[in-house]
């Protein structure tokens, strides 16, 4: 068998072609944002920005929720890109939990304030079937872009990588959604928007082992992004 290993080494060495090393996760995240953000902006303008957007932007809670959603998307993308680089600090994978917790906490605080202000009526959930498909539409290009970019890495933790990629795209998608969708009741946002982001991330995580797999890797040729 050692002779076989020598033969494998010879064949690999003979077939080696130049590759461009992948840029570090920060640069890859910036590249992903450069592709994704213009698309999200385009969708927001096609769908027409909400008429009260300027007033909402100066509303503290709305601003915190939007910054938290955007930061969740950004840090999830950074963690996803780090997770496909062997030897990279694994603790980065937990970083998106911080803005995610801030986002969840702000929505939870909003629910409590609504309950104090108007009682149980402030927590009523009505069907809002636009949220999930809208997040999917706004997050579609970011999702495809990050999936293609992540497939250039090493599939060390396929489910975690895919869940983080899904969280990045869905977080960015939800950020865009709230710029054109007039839905501000905290309970509704928590259930239909934050819930949709969590569901999409979980679905991506389940699909991860089919998308990121050692067997699907080529021999590492081609330009890297």
């Amino acid at each position: 068998m050692a002779r076989d290993t020598d033969a494998v080494i010879r064949r690999l060495a003979q077939s080696v072609e130049p590759v461009r090393p992948l840029p570090n996760p920060w640069i890859r995240t910036a590249a992903w944002l450069a592709v994704s953000v213009p698309y999200v902006v385009l969708v927001v303008f096609v769908m027409s920005p909400r008429p009260d957007l300027v007033a909402k932007a100066s509303n503290g809670r709305f601003a915190i929720e939007q910054v938290a959603a955007l930061t969740t998307g950004f840090t999830a993308a950074l963690a996803a890109f780090a997770s496909v680089v062997p030897g990279y600090d694994r603790r980065l994978v937990a970083v998106p939990l911080v803005p995610l917790a801030v986002w969840f906490g702000t929505l939870g605080q909003g629910c409590i304030q609504d309950w104090i202000r108007v009682g149980a009526n402030g927590l009523v959930l009505r069907p809002d079937w636009l949220c999930l498909p809208a997040i999917v539409v706004v997050g579609a290009v970011p999702a495809v872009a990050i999936a293609l970019m992540l497939r250039r890495g090493a599939p060390l933790t396929p489910r975690i990588t895919a869940a983080l990629g899904g969280l990045a795209a869905a977080g960015l998608g939800n950020f865009g959604l709230r710029l054109f969708h007039m839905q501000d009741a905290s309970a509704m946002v928590l259930a239909w928007q934050f819930g949709a982001v969590c569901v999409l991330s979980a679905v991506a995580g389940v699909a991860g082992r089919y998308v990121f797999d050692w067997r699907s890797l080529g021999n590492g040729r081609g330009a890297a992004i």
């Binding site: 690999l12 080696v16 461009r20 090393p21 992948l22 680089v85 090493a154 050692w214 890797l217 890297a224």
Partner: peptide, 13 residues
């Protein structure tokens, strides 16, 4: 060895 070959682009010099 094959895995190293497949993901050699992920190594940052």
């Amino acid at each position: 060895l094959l895995s190293v070959h497949a993901v050699r682009a992920t190594y940052d010099p």
